[in-house]
Every structure is written in C-alpha cells, then in structure tokens.
C-alpha cells in the first residue's frame, strides 16, 4: 500500500485516497471549437507510461483536496507531491 505525502495533511496511507488518472491532461477551453479527434483524445485516450508519471489523487478521506503525485509506475516510488495549483503542465 502506497504512502502518499498529502501537501495539506502529511503522509497518509493510500486507502485515504482515490486515484484520478493522468494529471497532465488539460480540459479544452469552454466555448471553443474543437475537432472530433482532439475531443476524443481528451475524453478517451491516456498514455500508460512505464516510469515517471504525474498523476492526480483525491484525498477523499482527508482534506478532500485533489493533489498531484509524481510516481514511478513500475517501482511505485513517489518522487514528489504537489498541491493542485502548484504545477500547471
């Protein structure tokens, strides 16, 4: 079970969190034309990298903040965690 450093609460066990997927996906702006292809990519397509991955976790049983976690998907090593607004990649 992972041990995740919540930037708001401190280190907590994985079972307090919900996984939220790739943190680098950016929602297309509202009221802007977008092609079918680009929209499909946003809604459905995700990379599944081996190695470093910036991902979202939601501290649902804690402070209820969404945080960003830089994790190695093969070793589970967590390099750094960020508040939601700390990095905007």
């Amino acid at each position: 079970m992972l041990y995740i450093l919540c930037p708001h609460c401190g280190s907590r066990s994985q079972n307090e969190f919900a996984y939220g997927g790739d943190a680098t996906v950016k929602r297309p702006e509202l009221n802007k034309e977008i092609s079918d292809q680009d929209w499909d990519n946003f809604v459905y397509l995700r990379k599944s990298p081996r190695g470093k991955h910036l991902e979202l976790w939601h501290h649902i049983s804690g402070c209820r903040q969404w945080i960003k976690v830089e994790r190695d998907t093969s070793t589970h090593e967590i390099f750094k965690t960020y508040k939601a607004d700390e990095i905007t990649e």
């Binding site: 919900a18 939220g20 929602r27 979202l56 939601h58 649902i60 209820r64 903040q65 969404w66 939601a84 607004d85």
Partner: peptide
C-alpha cells in the same frame, strides 16, 4: 452523492480554479 461531490471538487480545484 459522493461521486458528484468529487466531480465538483475536481472542476473547482483543477479545471477552473
């Protein structure tokens, strides 16, 4: 109920802060 709250928090914290 729980999913909707997480959904709203997602958009407020990450998409439209």
């Amino acid at each position: 109920a729980a999913n909707v709250l997480s959904h709203l928090e997602y958009y407020l914290q990450l998409v439209w802060p």
